[in-house]
C-alpha cells in the first residue's frame, strides 16, 4: 500500500510539472498590457520597456521558467503583479484557502448528509412519490442554470426571512444560505448516483437469494446493498470536494465570500500571471490528492480491492 502511494505520488509530481510548464508557457503568450494596467496609455514606450524588463519579462522563456522552478522549490510562488502589487502569492492564496475549504467541506458534508439518505430512500421506495419527488429535484437542479437559481435564492429567501444579503464571517446566520445553495447541486448528484448504485445492486442475484432465505428487508438494505453501493461513491468523494471548491465561483461572487474561486476569476481578469500559475498549481495538486485519496478510500471500504497490482488508470 505504502509503496503504491509512493509510486502514485512520484507520478503525480511529474504530471504537475508538465501542467505547470504548459500553463506557464501559455500565459507568456498573453498581451503585455495587463502588466501595465491603466498606466498603459500614459507611459512612453521607453518607460514601458523599463517596467517590463524589471519584471523579468524580457528574459528568454527558459530562463523565466528556470527561475520559477528554482523559487518554487523554496516554497516561493513569486509576487503578485497586478492583483496586489508585491504581495507574495503564497500569502494571498493562504488568506483565501481557508474560506474555500470551509465552504467546500461544509457543502459536501451537508450534501452527503442529505443526498445519500435521499438516494437510499429513493431506491428503497422506487417508483413511489418520494422517488418521483427526488427525481424532480434532481432534474430541476440539472436543468435550471445555476446562475439563475442561486440569484433567486439570494434575493427572495433573504427577503422572506429578513436576512442580510451578504456574507459576514462574524455573523454565522449569514453562512447558512451560501452553504445550502452550494450544497444543492452535489446533493442532487449524490442522491442520483446513490439511487442508481442501489438499484443496480438490488437487481443482483444474491439479493434474490437472500430474500428467498428470509433475510429481513432492513438488514438486507443496510448490511448488503448499502455497503456495496457505497464503494463506487467512495471513490468519487474526494473529487467532488474539489469540484465544490472550484465550482463555488457563483456563490462566492454573489455573497462576497473571499474564497479562491473569485480569486481565480479576478486574477485572470487582471492578467496576474503569477497568481494564475500559483492557483493552477494548488488546484491541480488538490485534484491529484483527491484522486489518490479516492483510490485509497475505495480500498478501505472494499476489502476485495488491492492497490498496487495492475496499476494503470482508474
Amino acid at each position: 500500500m505504502l509503496q503504491y502511494i509512493g509510486k502514485r505520488l512520484l507520478q503525480s509530481v511529474l504530471t504537475l510539472f508538465i501542467i505547470i510548464t504548459i500553463v506557464f508557457s501559455l500565459l507568456r503568450l498573453m498581451p503585455e498590457e495587463g502588466y501595465l494596467g491603466a498606466a498603459a496609455d500614459k507611459m512612453s514606450p521607453a518607460q514601458q520597456e523599463i517596467y517590463l524588463t524589471s519584471l523579468g519579462l524580457r528574459d528568454p522563456i527558459l530562463v523565466q521558467l528556470g527561475n520559477f522552478y528554482k523559487n518554487l522549490l523554496q516554497g516561493d510562488l513569486g509576487k503578485s503583479v497586478t492583483y496586489r502589487t508585491d504581495v507574495p502569492v503564497v500569502t494571498i492564496i493562504a488568506d483565501k484557502i481557508t474560506y474555500s475549504l470551509l465552504f467546500g467541506l461544509g457543502a459536501v458534508g451537508l450534501s452527503l448528509l442529505i443526498g445519500v439518505p435521499l438516494g437510499i430512500m429513493m431506491a428503497y421506495r422506487k417508483g413511489r412519490w418520494l422517488d418521483r419527488l427526488g427525481t424532480g429535484y434532481i432534474v430541476f437542479v440539472v436543468a435550471v442554470p445555476a446562475a439563475v437559481y442561486y440569484l433567486v435564492i439570494q434575493m427572495y429567501i433573504t427577503e422572506l426571512f429578513q436576512l442580510p444579503m451578504l456574507f459576514d464571517e462574524y455573523r454565522p446566520i449569514t453562512w447558512i444560505l451560501p452553504l445550502t445553495s452550494m450544497a444543492l447541486a452535489p446533493t442532487a448528484s449524490y442522491a442520483m448516483w446513490m439511487r442508481r448504485y442501489m438499484v443496480d445492486e438490488l437487481n443482483k442475484d444474491y439479493i434474490k437469494l437472500a430474500r428467498a432465505k428470509g433475510v429481513k428487508e432492513r438488514t438486507l438494505m443496510f448490511k448488503h446493498v448499502l455497503r456495496n453501493a457505497f464503494i463506487p461513491m467512495a471513490q468519487y468523494l474526494p473529487a467532488t470536494i474539489l469540484f465544490t471548491i472550484t465550482g463555488s465561483i457563483y456563490i462566492e461572487s454573489l455573497y462576497s465570500i473571499p474564497g479562491m474561486g473569485g480569486l481565480l476569476v479576478d486574477a485572470i481578469q487582471r492578467q496576474d500571471n503569477t497568481i494564475v500559475q500559483g492557483l493552477v498549481l494548488v488546484f491541480s495538486s488538490l485534484g491529484i490528492i483527491g484522486l489518490i485519496l479516492g483510490d485509497i478510500a475505495m480500498a478501505l471500504v472494499d476489502p476485495r480491492i488491492k492497490l498496487g497490482k495492475g496499476g494503470g488508470v482508474r
Binding site: 461572487s253 454573489l254 462576497s256
Partner: peptide, 19 residues
C-alpha cells in the same frame, strides 16, 4: 467597503434594503 463581484446585480437591492 464591502467587496462583491456581483455588485452591479446585487447593489441596487442592497441599497433598497438599507444595507
Amino acid at each position: 467597503y464591502k467587496y462583491n463581484k456581483e455588485a452591479a446585480t446585487v447593489a441596487p437591492e442592497l441599497f433598497l434594503r438599507g444595507e
